[in-house]
Design a protein around this nucleic acid. Structure first.
Lengths: 118, 118
DNA sequence: GCTTGACCTAGAGTTAACTATAGGGATTAA
DNA sequence: TTAATCCCTATAGTTAACTCTAGGTCAAGC
């Protein structure tokens, strides 16, 4: 199975190797395997998981919250419902923020000029 | 015209007075007026503007970027297009993130269990 | 067999965004 | 008129999330 080095992954995801090692230290990547001498070997699926992590981060989730989620994944099927709930909740939160932004934007007189454009 | 104290506003927006003073120091609230002795007086419209600021922050915009936007507002009509572009761009960014999250979520094997629920 | 370059860890340093403290002024209630 | 309670500024401290440095290991090429 093809594997990738930390710098290849960093390059692909537009992160630094420092950031990836930091994520690992914080427990966000318990699934990444190592060579006998300790070098990390990333699988294709690991990169997919890191993309999920990046998305969660982009919607404002903290490293600690993401770690909880990863821990649930390691715990297997018993945490299915929790993970599903988290996903739905996060999705709703982001959507609410966008709605609120549109609403406030249109009613705020700081933007009175621009309102008619929307 | 009815005005509000900093603690009333903090309470209404679920922020601390520290945070509001910090925003002011960073130039996010040039529109807030003062009594002769220096106490801030918030108008209804100021609270609306702060709600816009909170929404921008919630979608991941930094204080510095928000300050740029506020400065554009102070600059008047000449910055209309810039402000409109920024709003559209930010909206697109957040929507892209949500789409990407859904896509990665469904394809990542870290979530193989949960996929069928979505 | 030695150098080069990518990897490693531990831990120090940095930046943004608060959060709190110290010291002081104004308004209000007793 | 004084005590309490709000407000103010300046500045120090904290936390999260990186970001970097020092010192070392290991595999590949010359």
């Amino acid at each position: 199975m093809k594997t990738y080095s930390i710098s290849e992954v960093a390059n692909e995801l537009n992160l630094t190797v420092y950031t990836l090692r930091y994520y690992d230290k914080e427990g966000l990547m318990p699934f990444v395997e190592r060579t006998p001498s300790g070098t990390r070997l990333f699988k294709e699926s690991d990169i997919g998981a890191l993309k999920v992590i990046e998305c969660l981060k982009a919607t404002g989730m903290s490293i600690k919250e993401i770690k909880n989620f990863i821990d649930w994944c390691s715990d297997g099927d018993s945490t299915l419902q929790q993970r599903y709930d988290m996903f739905i909740e996060r999705k709703a939160l982001v959507e609410t923020q966008m709605e609120e932004l549109k609403k406030q934007w249109n009613s705020s007189n700081i933007n009175a000029y621009i309102t008619r454009l929307l």
